[in-house]
Amino acid sequence: MSSASRRLVDDLSGAIPFVMALAGWALLSNYGNVPEYMLPPLGQMWMRFREALVDGSLLRHVSGSLYRLAISFVIGNAIAIPLGIAIAMNRNVSDLLRPVLTFFQSIAGIAWVPLAVIWFGIGMGSVIFVITNTIFFGAIYSTVIGVQMIPKTLHRAVLCHGAKGMQVFTELILPGALVQIILGLRTSMAYGWRALVAGEMIAGSSGLGYMTIEAVQWYQTDTVIMGMILIGLLWLMLDRLLFAPLERHTVARWGLLQR
């Protein structure tokens, strides 16, 4: 077998468990005496999916969720990374603030949802606050750590070669901390994604999380499962198409990740 066709077989073989799971689902829901509200038949799932697609509600929920995530991601990082670098450049300031940042990072995320509801009410504001909070503290913490992990020797070497002010920043601090910053981005996005779904469930008025928890009230299990599958697919796309390549082009290239 040529290597190309072998790879094709490999790729296709990965589909087998999915097909088997679907077949098991179909059998169980049709002949297994399982009530419809616990496991809706596949046909019904498909109908629900088409219905939600046609009336535009699905698209609205998905784009709403992604929009909130994108806004929070940009705001959170745009503040956190410059601030983190500024904090880390001064030893005293960073020593002063590190425990505070550690602490806030450890409670960032879902735990802020109830407080956010008090401050911003149910809806967009609360959800954005919670995700921004998660991403901000994730990013600022890893930025500070990243700058502090740059070896003293390199610092001295750069100064010895006559680097001045801005040069120290562009030649040493930025590339040195970049790896840690990018790893932090990916991790904080993973927490941010959970916070998004959870936040929408408790404090949202639209979005994928809201759609699924709302469906629980009416025992619309088909909608719940549709939401779950979409949440999985969207995260895979985000992680594999956005963060994996980013990490490959930066972290792996700088050679600090040993796999």
Binding site: V197, G209, V224, G227, M228, I231, L233
Partner: peptide, 12 residues
């Protein structure tokens, strides 16, 4: 299954 975060399973 790893990508379907646990938060999303809770309603089900």
């Amino acid at each position: 299954l790893y990508a379907i975060v646990e938060v999303a399973w809770i309603p089900l």
